[in-house]
């Protein structure tokens, strides 16, 4: 534990230690996470992969403080979030974590611009205009800012979600199958942007995905099976990911 803590704050953005998450009770209990220890370095793009039901989404929810755990610890940027109450978790999400979900990322009542700035506004922070412009231009959203989500395509909606996740410069961005609903071209745009935000802007991104092609954009792949870590791949390619998954029996 001491080794881990000393690491935190220098190079580690997010760390999980012996994480356990159980759904249900008695006979029907499911150990969705069964002793997962894993670290995610700052400034890197990590993909979490594994067969369906292996606990990827659960892990991400626990890492992001969206769900409570039944055992183990999670550190985000030096803070042990498993010890925090709802108020502090909320504050953590506001200030230090960004999210991109598979769908329903945006509030239908707000324009694209208002959606992008929503997190900052909740935190009561002034947006950095220059940074905002950079993100909007990189994502090609300039002429869509005044539109409501219902007037945007699926790919555009996901790009707006990415912009919102990044505009607050969080310690880490979590993305759960951000390209799951997109065609390959729109998916590639979103992935390109996430990779660029890591390489050029120094962001930390943790992404859950099913898609080996999507995983190949990452710097590293963490594999899960039956709620336990099942290996890692550095500098993954589509092929290396595919063969690793085949090996897991997915």
């Amino acid at each position: 534990m001491s080794a881990l803590v000393s690491d935190v704050g220098t190079r580690t953005a997010v760390a999980a230690e012996d994480l356990v998450k159980v759904y249900g009770k008695g006979d029907t209990a499911v150990r969705a996470l069964d002793g997962v220890s894993v670290t995610f370095q700052a400034g890197r793009f990590t993909a979490i992969m594994g067969p369906s039901g292996s606990g990827k989404s659960t892990l991400m929810h626990c890492l992001a403080g969206l769900d409570n755990v039944d055992g183990g610890k999670v550190h985000v940027g030096g803070t042990e979030i498993t010890a925090l109450g709802d108020k502090d978790l909320t504050k953590l999400r506001r200030d230090r974590v960004g999210f991109v979900f598979q769908a329903f990322n945006l509030l239908p009542t707000l324009t694209a611009e208002a959606n992008i700035l929503l997190g900052l506004e909740l935190a009561g922070r002034k947006p950095d205009r220059e940074w905002f412009d950079t993100i909007v231009d990189v994502l090609g959203l300039r002429d869509r800012l005044k539109h409501k989500p219902s007037e945007l395509s699926g790919g555009q909606q996901q790009r707006v979600a990415c912009a919102r996740a990044l505009v607050a410069r969080p310690d880490v961005v979590f993305a759960d199958e951000p390209t799951g609903n997109l065609d390959s071209r729109s998916g590639a745009e979103v992935l390109d942007f996430l990779r660029m935000s890591v390489r050029k802007l120094g962001q930390t991104v943790i992404m859950v995905t099913h898609d080996p092609v999507a995983a190949s954009y990452a710097d590293r792949v963490v594999l899960l099976a039956d709620g336990r870590p099942a290996g890692e791949i550095d500098s993954p390619t589509t092929d290396s990911v595919l063969s690793a998954l085949k090996h897991l029996g997915a």
Binding site: D86, T90, K91, R93, F99, F104, G119
Partner: peptide, 16 residues
């Protein structure tokens, strides 16, 4: 429900 969850994920407190 989803919308509320999204807002909570983005940092809206229970009270808010």
């Amino acid at each position: 429900t989803r919308e509320s969850a999204l807002l909570r994920a983005l940092g809206l407190t229970r009270g808010q």
